[in-house]
């Protein structure tokens, strides 16, 4: 089962009806707490300025699938109506839906602050990190789907194995034969060179870029933007020697490497860490050309 199928927009909408009754949840302590918080917040806002304390809700349409459970074997969308709070993110909203309406709603998440890279979803047709996407920036109903072009394990969880394999394929570890010998002596690196690799080193392996890439969708062996960016981090780091850089470029210019990129910028657009992925790929292409010219 792959999310590629879900590209037909009309198909799943027909199967939502049975879930409405799930919205009637008992008032759990968590709910009361959130309620209390909301009231406090509204009171604060009301006293500060005029405020608008009326109850707003968020309408989510969430992709559901479980290969084991009879009524979830056919993919469907469930509707959830979640009370809105200022600052609420897509992750907050699906967590609320899980904790109050349906504990089987399944997705990866951990740090809640855009550094663990677990919660890349396809939200309103775009790859985004759930934890750093504000509900208030989205039009409703908000469609939350698993990342396209990856096998769906269950609900919003996709199989990341292929992504990890590509990340591992670029020898993603520092290689230098020439470490300083003095006691407690570090390799020197200029500020400029550190700055050069800074953006590339921010990658959190969320997989949004790979999922957005048409080339990766059509060529399963394409290294993909994240892995190429990982290689960029090392190839541009002056602490590695020239021979190692050449070795890295040879890995990158193979058939399923940098030359497959058609500079559509989709990866750059969706990257939650603002990494200029396409530019990095282009730069590596130029480096590869330069090296080849040198050899010829």
């Amino acid at each position: 089962m792959s999310t590629q199928r879900q590209k037909q927009p009309d198909e799943p909408e027909t199967q939502e009806a049975p879930t409405d009754q799930e919205m009637k949840a008992e008032a759990s302590p968590q709910q009361k707490r959130l309620q209390r918080k909301r009231e406090q917040q509204s009171a604060r806002e009301a006293s500060a300025d005029e405020g608008e304390p009326e109850e707003e809700t968020v309408h989510l349409k969430v992709f559901r699938y479980d290969p084991e459970v009879a009524d979830k074997q056919e993919p469907r969308f469930d509707d959830f109506h979640v009370p809105f709070e200022k600052g609420m993110t897509v992750l907050d909203a699906v967590m609320y839906a899980r904790d109050h309406f349906d504990s089987s709603l399944t997705f990866r998440h951990s740090c809640r602050q855009a550094v663990c890279g677990s919660d890349a979803f396809f939200v309103n047709g775009k790859q985004r990190l759930g934890c750093k996407t504000q509900i208030s920036d989205l039009s409703q109903p908000i469609r939350v789907e698993p990342l396209p072009h990856q096998e769906v394990v269950k609900d919003l969880v996709v199989d990341m194995d292929h992504f990890y394999e590509q990340m591992h394929a670029v020898e993603p570890y520092f290689q230098s034969e020439d470490l300083p010998q003095g006691e407690l002596e570090e390799q020197r690196q200029s500020r400029e060179n550190r700055e050069k690799i800074k953006m590339s080193s921010r990658c959190i392996w969320c997989g949004a870029c790979m999922s957005s890439c048409n080339i990766a969708a059509g060529d399963n062996q394409y290294l993909g933007p994240a892995a190429i960016n990982k290689a960029y981090k090392f190839a541009m780091d002056d602490r590695e020697e020239e021979e190692i850089k050449e070795h890295r470029l040879r890995i990158l210019e193979q058939e399923h490497g940098v030359w497959r990129c058609q500079t559509q910028f989709s990866c750059t657009e969706v990257c939650p860490k603002d990494i200029p992925l396409t530019e990095h790929i282009q730069e590596l292409k130029r480096e590869a050309v330069k090296k080849n010219l040198k050899f010829w």
Binding site: Y173, F174, L184, Q187, Q189, K198, F234, D237, E240
Partner: peptide
């Protein structure tokens, strides 16, 4: 801690740098 920190640098960790290139 000093040896272990330098060890991380030798493993390529991108520390912030001073003008002279030290961490």
């Amino acid at each position: 801690a000093p040896e272990e920190t330098i060890n991380l640098e030798h493993w390529g960790m991108p520390f912030s740098r001073e003008d002279d290139g030290t961490v």
